[in-house]
Computed example of a mutant assay.
Amino acid sequence: MSVAAPAFAFDIGSLLNNKPKESDKFAIIRVDKLASLMNDPNSHVNIYDANGWGLRSTAGV
């Protein structure tokens, strides 16, 4: 015999007393905007290449 407990939606972070996570700040930008961000030492821009090795080896970065 099993007993079903009621389910409640809650924030697991508040249960664990964790600080809320700041949301990620991703954006799709044009090449000219990227160039200006890369030249600005205060922009703190991070660039990630999401293409796999196979595509990079044939098409470049």
Rank of each mutant, 00 (worst) to 15 (best):
M1H: 09
V3R: 14
A4N: 07
A4L: 04
A5E: 06
A5Q: 06
A5I: 08
A5T: 04
P6H: 07
P6V: 09
A7F: 08
A7P: 04
F8D: 13
F8A: 09
A9K: 10
F10I: 00
F10Y: 09
D11W: 02
I12S: 00
I12L: 04
S14D: 13
S14E: 15
S14G: 08
L15F: 09
N17H: 11
N17V: 04
N18A: 10
K19V: 06
P20S: 06
P20L: 01
P20I: 03
P20H: 02
P20F: 04
P20A: 11
E22S: 13
S23L: 07
S23M: 06
S23I: 04
D24T: 07
K25G: 12
K25N: 14
F26A: 02
F26R: 04
I28G: 11
I28V: 09
I28R: 10
R30Q: 09
V31F: 11
V31H: 15
D32A: 08
K33G: 13
K33D: 15
L34G: 11
A35S: 12
S36E: 15
L37G: 02
L37H: 09
M38P: 05
N39T: 08
D40L: 03
P41Y: 02
N42D: 15
H44G: 15
H44Y: 15
H44W: 11
N46I: 06
I47P: 05
I47E: 06
Y48V: 01
N51V: 01
N51R: 13
G54P: 01
G54H: 02
G54T: 01
L55H: 03
S57E: 13
S57D: 11
S57W: 11
S57P: 07
S57N: 13
T58W: 12
G60C: 02
